[in-house]
Write a protein that binds this DNA or RNA. Sequence first.
DNA 1: AAAACCCTCAACCGCGGGGAC
DNA 2: AGTCCCCGCGGTTGAGGGTTT
Length: 334
Amino acid sequence: MGRPPCCDKEGVKKGPWTPEEDIILVSYIQEHGPGNWRAVPAKTGLSRCSKSCRLRWTNYLRPGIKRGNFTEQEEKMIIHLQDLLGNRWAAIASYLPQRTDNDIKNYWNTHLRKKLKKMQVGCEGGSFGEGFSASRQIPRGQWERRLQTDIQMAKRALSEALSPEKPSCNLSASNSNPSDSSSSFSSTKPTTTQTVCYASSADNIARMLKGWMKNPPKSSRTNSSSVTQNSFNNFAAAGADTASSIGAKGPPSSAELSENNFESLFDFDQSFESSNSDEFSRSLSPEATVLQDESKPDVIGAEIMPFSLLEKWLLDEAGCQEKLVGCGDDAKFF
DNA sequence: AAAACCCTCAACCGCGGGGAC
DNA sequence: AGTCCCCGCGGTTGAGGGTTT
């Protein structure tokens, strides 16, 4: 019969989101929680289709999203999971709770695919090429059985990556402070720059909302027609003063996080959490979802908790993984 | 300095799954 | 049982920024 296009209505806006639209959306979700996207445009007055609102939230505004450079560990995880799962980006993203499927997909398409191609050419017939692509020829039943095992293997690999006593692990000792608000992953970048946390991190949204209260859109809008994502991030930062302070290349300093910001952040997350926690927990693997349910308040610190939970999950199961996976498998892994 | 080319990533599109009726 | 509606997913696009020539 054919499905009518979701966004064929006239007057539905497309293209990049403006800071004003973002704030409207975040404010609405702060109040009602994510979900019921169909109602969002009508209730907020946004000239966007429901799908666009959902996408904007899940891919950009949702708290706890880490943006910017992928760490080596993340890269390896993606490569391996892609090999295991194929282009099931949402499933892959469930193992990297701070990354969106869109981000992972983009990263794969722009970086990793080329990288792998290069490496496979470089290691023609070598050990690297062998580990990959084999699973794609496996019939489905077999594939599913193997997937079970492979997921265990992936968990084991991540466990090892996160394990502090492993010298090969990229987790830097300098970041061992559990109260450090930067994520475990952000500390794993072994070589270059710090990982970037943009506006989508909960603290920035909290600041954005705070700033919004102080500066309603009329007064705050100076360049809305040419506003970019990054400029929104700058806008979101307290005071929205300098572009270099946060937006383009660096996480906000802890000094920027006032007590009020944290309060509003928690308020935000609690309302969002209590009313509808599905967005985040859905994004986790089934096992991880269980953990999320067990420790919901912890999700609030989404910059940290997903991986603390993941660590727990991994370490708890380390024993059983030992039985499932032979020691030699690590070499194949990464 | 300017043009051409390349790269990145936010956003869109269309399809499929699943629940509600 | 069949249909409709909502939501999520994966593929794709194109604007804008960066790099090279």
